[in-house]
């Protein structure tokens, strides 16, 4: 079992944890965090699997995938946070 495999399995585990969170949690924020966890796990799997024993350089393509994923996730999180905030204010308005 190589280091990469360990990292990869760990990444999968993180993804699984995130998945459980997204599916199981009720609170909006918790679910958003769990989604981010998922994203992290997925990134970890990809990064780990692009590893090549030196002196070979790591495969750049998964890295590109990961970077794109991070960008998407950041923007999506931003949108989601905005939505949550707006929803929160609307709901408190209604409740008040």
């Amino acid at each position: 079992m190589t280091e990469a495999t360990i990292y990869g399995l760990a990444g999968l585990a993180v993804f699984g944890l995130g998945l459980m969170g997204v599916l199981g949690a009720a609170d909006r924020l918790r679910r958003l965090v769990a989604l981010n966890l998922c994203a992290g796990g997925a990134a970890m799997v990809l990064v780990a699997s692009s590893w090549r024993p030196p002196p070979a350089a790591p495969d750049p393509v998964p890295h590109a995938l990961v970077i794109t994923g991070i960008v998407v996730m950041v923007s999506a999180t931003a949108v989601a946070l905005a939505l949550i905030r707006r929803l929160y204010s609307l709901e408190t308005d209604t409740d008040a």
């Binding site: 997925a42 699997s49 995938l65 989601a80």
Partner: peptide, 29 residues
């Protein structure tokens, strides 16, 4: 409010789907 709630649920589902696709794409590669 209803639209926002539904939209948020939509977003989570959509993001999760995208992440699965991303992971799948990685595996394929």
């Amino acid at each position: 409010v209803a639209a926002l709630r539904a939209g948020l649920a939509y977003m989570y589902a959509s993001l999760l789907g995208a992440l699965m696709v991303l992971l799948g794409v990685g595996f394929v590669y």
